[in-house]
Amino acid sequence: MTLPQPPAGGAPIARLLTLLIAVLLLGGIGTGAVLYAADRSGKRDEEQQGGPAVRAGSVSLQPAGQQLVFRSMAWGPHRDELATVPADHPDGERTASGVKCLRFHAAAGTGICLQAVHGALEDTYRTVILDAKLHELHTFPAAGIPTRARVSPSGYLAAWTVFVSGDSYAGTDFSTRTAIVDTRTWALQDNLETYAITKDGHPFQSHDTNIWGVTFADDTRFYATLATGGHTYLVQGDVTARTLTTLHQNVECPSLSPDGTRVAYKKRAPGAPADAPWRLYVLDLRTMTETATAEQRNIDDQALWADDSTLVYALPGDFGADLWTTPADGSGSPRRLVSAAVAPAYLG
């Protein structure tokens, strides 16, 4: 029996079929790999590049337990979002909220979020007051680059500072604008420089005053920095009377302790470099005694009290900034608390 022979030119056709099958198989493998990777990405919802683990989820400003909330600086889809970790496990996986802030603070279920609004020609900025579920309650235009934000212990007042010109406190060529809003009525005091100032026991006026870094004692009294004539002062402010009174010199970005007896602040240290002049100090408001903390690096931040004995503050890090902690009484030594984080608030 004679078997039929393939037609002339059959070999090239067979080779083409083999090649086509190989291409289809490789394409199927590639597609499968892409789908598998996408599926894993969706399940993990993180694209970190060596940074802390982050998952999308629900963030509350009135958590069931004590939480640390901050702006997450970890690379990936959740960079710059507010994120939370348990206060007693700060290095754990963080939950990202989807809300992006440049500066943030919160207390008693009220949050303040200073945001950039990206435009075609230039960025603008705004202040957003948030409820406990991070929903927007009210917004205000911000006159410049956001730098400081605080909420009063009751959640009824919020304050923020922006750079109107210049971008650093280290030099002298800058101007700030600080505002306070009542979150119950939305009454806005948009420039604290209009307050009546008492300096060294006497009424004081000057065209070069700058005020920044509000920290609240209650819904009437606060502390802040007043700069004039090349010097800085700790001032006590009264929201109702609209007054500022100087208390102590060489104080910037104060932060009041939970018990209301001390202020942590950055102080220009003698002999420090002009571009890195600050060290972290604590002032006893009863005795006006200063205590240098164990942190000897330059601090360009408004420190936060984790409790009555511990300070938290930001320093430059691999992802932009890390949170560090040191005892407020000058003992011990600094240690890193959270990597890739800035603008913290303790809640719960």
Rank of each mutant, 00 (worst) to 15 (best):
P203D: 05
L285W: 03
G109I: 12
W305K: 02
R177D: 04
Y265L: 15
R40K: 14
V85D: 03
T215P: 12
T209G: 00
P7A: 14
P7F: 08
A158Q: 12
T178P: 03
L3A: 13
L26P: 04
P270R: 05
M288F: 13
L304I: 13
T198G: 05
L19W: 09
A314G: 11
Q5H: 11
H248P: 07
S206N: 09
A196K: 13
E193T: 15
A343I: 05
S154P: 04
D275P: 02
T127R: 10
P12G: 09
D45L: 01
T84H: 02
W324K: 01
V99F: 00
R297Y: 00
A37H: 12
D167A: 13
A303Q: 07
K43W: 07
T84I: 09
A276K: 14
W278H: 14
L24D: 02
A11H: 11
T243C: 01
I180W: 04
F70W: 08
L347W: 04
L192P: 02
H105V: 09
D329M: 01
R279K: 12
D219W: 01
G32S: 13
T2E: 10
A341L: 10
L68F: 13
H207F: 05
L234E: 05
A38N: 13
V239M: 08
P141R: 11
A108L: 13
G57V: 03
P258C: 09
V59Q: 00
A8N: 07
Y313C: 04
D322K: 04
L17D: 01
T183S: 07
P63M: 08
V34K: 10
T172N: 11
F104I: 13
V34I: 15
P7I: 08
L82C: 10
S60Y: 02
K43S: 12
G76Y: 03
L244A: 08
R286A: 14
V263F: 02
G98V: 09
L26R: 10
R94F: 00
D208F: 07
A108S: 15
I129M: 06
T124N: 08
S339W: 03
L121D: 14
A149I: 10
D238I: 02
W212T: 15
A341I: 09
A196D: 11
P7G: 14
D173I: 01
G28A: 12
A74W: 07
A149M: 11
G213Q: 04
V69I: 14
Y313V: 06
T176Y: 07
D329I: 04
T245Y: 01
Y346I: 15
D318M: 09
D190W: 02
T176E: 11
D322N: 13
S206A: 15
A187F: 03
E295Q: 14
T240E: 08
W160Q: 03
T310F: 00
A241P: 01
W160V: 02
S257H: 10
S309A: 11
L134S: 04
V99K: 09
G27Y: 02
F70H: 11
S257G: 06
L280E: 04
G229A: 10
T287E: 03
A107K: 15
G111Q: 12
S255Y: 08
G213W: 00
D123M: 06
I21L: 15
S72I: 00
